[in-house]
Write a protein that binds this DNA or RNA. Structure first.
Length: 361
DNA sequence: AACTGTGTTGAG
DNA sequence: TCAACACAGTTG
């Protein structure tokens, strides 16, 4: 795996498929904090952020770079990036999608040199997704990955046909790969709470998502891409937290919880394609969809607190899962109310703190 | 505490 | 349209 200095999304270009899954090391903390500043310069001036040489790229206080494009008198934020170049490339992608093939960009135009097949595919890819979808990919840093996926499915489906069928991913496109179930987890209140992380049961984590020594100790972890049934790609930071001795999905997780309106008691399922690619998949099923037979058992959670096992039994009742995105006030009975929920979160947090002290690794 | 990205403004 | 700047709101 070669990831040199490259940024996340660029690196995804090279993430060829080496089992058990494709991973990307999390960008190193090589960010240059606020400009050190001229030893000689004027103090006041030294606080100014360095402007970018690229169009659509703006500096961030922490040394990173933001990308933005304007449309209809409004700014559309494209995300923040470690590399100025990556931000510039993201702007370019947005510019092409928003303003067409001839949009002014920072780097070369697509199809400039004899309309390469690759470029043609990217144009088709852009056209087959809405502006919002493209922006979403850019903000999540999954654009390169998704573009590459569509290329794969295109090749797999046979290059004779036209681009559209396989490129119009969204639906069941070329996503018929055989998958194997890795594991499932009924999410806890803290998994969908303000901790913004999902704890992966250790056994499953070590079996399916082994971390290399470096990543484990550095706690920086790696980036994993998962696809859901809608073909949407989710990128999560996956790492090991020494303090709680647990494996977790962090960055990106809260976004998933929010969009899926995930609630405590729902079950998230992890799968992996069995082919060469080893793509990862993530989906979930609402608590209310639990299979009757199992439902009697599954939701019971055992929380170990200070050496004592505490049983938690969710209240199966009224779980009007707001079909849409509307955040239904309360659902399911892990707790009787919001406040209660918070307490549970705090408790589980306390647990980990305790472990840290006692576990004294 | 750190970071993101929005609000706002003025230049081009 | 665009970037500079400040900082509120969000995430870690």
């Amino acid at each position: 795996m070669e990831i040199s200095s490259t940024d996340e999304s660029t690196a995804s270009d090279s993430i060829s498929i080496s089992p058990p899954y494709s991973t990307l090391p999390v960008a190193s903390p090589s960010l240059s904090p606020p400009p050190p500043l001229a030893d000689t310069g004027v103090e006041a001036e030294s606080r100014k952020l360095p402007s970018s040489k690229y169009k659509g790229v703006v500096p961030q206080p922490n040394g990173r770079w933001g990308a933005q494009i304007y449309e209809k008198h409004q700014r559309v934020w494209l995300g923040t990036f470690n590399d100025e170049d990556e931000a510039a490339r993201s702007y370019d992608v947005a510019a092409r999608r928003f303003r067409g093939r001839d949009a002014v960009t920072n780097f070369k135009k697509l199809g400039d040199t004899g309309e390469s097949v690759e470029d043609g595919m990217e144009v088709a890819f852009l056209e087959s997704h809405s502006k919002a979808e493209i922006v979403d990919m850019l903000r999540k840093h999954t654009y390169r990955y998704e573009l590459e996926q569509s290329r794969r499915s295109y090749r797999a489906t046979g290059c004779d046909g036209d681009l559209s069928p396989s490129l119009v991913s969204g639906g069941a496109g070329g996503r018929g790969d055989a998958r194997e179930q890795l594991f499932e987890k009924a999410v806890t209140p803290s998994d969908v709470g303000k901790l913004n992380r999902l704890v992966i049961p250790k056994q499953h984590a070590e079996k399916h998502f082994p971390l290399q020594g470096g990543a484990t100790s550095s706690s920086k972890g790696i980036l994993l891409n998962f696809e859901d049934d809608g073909g949407k790609v989710w990128r999560f930071r996956y790492s090991y937290w020494k303090s709680s001795q647990s494996y977790v999905l962090t960055k990106g997780w809260s976004r998933f919880v929010k969009e899926k309106n995930l609630k405590a008691g729902d079950t998230v399922c992890f799968q992996r394609s069995t082919g060469q690619e080893k793509k990862l998949y993530i989906n979930f099923r609402p608590w209310s969809n639990a299979v009757p037979a199992q439902s009697l058992i599954r939701p019971v959670q055992i929380v170990r607190l200070f050496g004592v096992n505490i049983l938690k039994i969710p209240n199966p009742g009224i779980m009007a899962k707001g079909g849409d995105g509307v955040a239904v006030g309360r659902r399911g009975g892990w707790c009787s109310g919001r406040k209660r929920m918070r307490e549970v979160d705090l408790l589980s947090f306390e647990c980990s703190k305790k472990q840290m002290v006692v576990g004294a690794l």
